[in-house]
Nucleic acid binder design. Structure first.
Lengths: 218, 218
DNA sequence: CTTAAAATTTAGGTTACCCAAAATTTATTT
DNA sequence: AAATAAATTTTGGGTAACCTAAATTTTAAG
């Protein structure tokens, strides 16, 4: 039973929508994530249900089955491994990888995937700090939290970005913030919840609440 | 003006059919190369003609325009660079690369292509000895010839295989023949034109005329 | 120059996606 | 519980590729 590129993209969308809250997704949200019309979603969800990749019913929405989750995680694994490859070996920056990885994630070859992973040293995290599922779909868990929830004086390590858009990533570059950096909260403004952080013990930077929310630290 | 995956495959097929003899191809041969029905070819050739990627007319067949040739060579460049990558860095054997490269050749990213080429050291030949077009579509020319045309006593170097099917490549592996090997013609049988060759100054191997025809040497 | 064979095109379908607008179902509010 | 709002599905259409079978051309042979 083969899964088409379009189907893989639906599975990914459903995965990302249900991953956090464990609940189900409606047509609308799926349509939004895939930039298509909600009307188009219905028939595909039926097809995925027929294929036993999702459980679907009109009122409560869609949810991945075990098989569907496995398929989704495999696509995500490929996506994140390719992103890692692009950054570590082909001089891509973290804001340049997404588009290309969206294509590469659909290449079908078990050997390619295995060899790519081992070529990269079986990495556990991609260039954005997102966990890379292993062969069996298992992902390393890191209980990171928002920079915006941090207390003054805390020394924290940046481990992940909560927004992979090129614009946010370039913004972080401009601020000089990268994965692995250590930073300390110096001030938290009451009126707008923006924070002042000290970067690597050197310069200080102001971050809006919105930006701080998207910087994940431990 | 974007070129779809299907269109790229048509361009490749037309390229490979017209490359040697410089003439034009008919629907039939294109259909055969793409494993589709000849009747399906007509409309696509019209579309490619509209896009000015080929010149087409019912009686003399199809031929690439400058733009079409450029597009075809770009796909071939990608295909052969990926094959090189797979063999040199991901432990693929030369009989395993084709299928995957058929998928990878359609990934669209100028940066990816440039960086891949330079990561590989801008190779001029792929794992089968086929020339890799450069950025501008220029290919290194090597005037190699059939092993079956060789005279007795000649010392020759294997530079290319004339048949990239997995079965032939595995056959060569079994015979111990690889790209770069030096071999000497010891005998040519009159009755079936099979040849006896000495491999790397060591063992001797009998090759059928059919096999010898597919081993390119200089 | 006629005719048979080969190649190409036409005509009518199919499948996998997608859309807009209308109709229906489900959820929320009063 | 009825009215309204929101989400979903249906309907009717569209596009890109593909197919088969039946014309129609073109080419090649006598």
């Amino acid at each position: 039973m083969t899964i088409s590129v379009t189907e893989e993209n639906y599975l990914k969308a459903i995965f990302s929508a249900t991953y956090v809250s464990e609940s189900r997704v409606g047509n609308q949200l799926i349509a939004e994530k895939l930039s298509i019309n909600p009307a188009s979603v219905t028939e595909m969800l039926r097809k995925l249900d027929d294929k036993k990749l999702i459980e679907y019913n009109r009122s409560s929405g869609a949810k991945l089955t075990k098989d569907g989750q496995k398929a989704a995680l495999n696509v995500i694994r490929k996506h994140r491994l390719w992103e890692t490859f692009l950054v570590e070996h082909l001089n891509f920056t973290w804001d340049q990888v997404h588009e290309v990885a969206e294509q590469l994630e659909h290449i079908q070859s078990d050997k390619l995937l295995d060899e790519l992973a081992s070529f990269l040293g079986n990495p556990e995290f991609d260039p954005h700090g997102d966990p890379i599922p292993d062969k069996h779909g298992k992902m390393p868990v890191v209980k990171s939290s928002n920079l915006s929830n941090a207390a003054i004086g805390k020394k924290l390590k940046v481990v992940k970005v909560g927004d992979n858009t090129a614009s946010f990533l370039k913004y972080l570059d401009k601020q000089g913030i990268a994965l692995g950096d250590i930073l300390t909260i110096k001030e938290v403004q009451d009126f707008d919840r923006s924070v002042l952080v000290e970067l690597k013990g050197k310069k200080e930077v102001y971050l809006s609440a919105g930006a701080a929310e998207k910087i994940m630290v431990i």
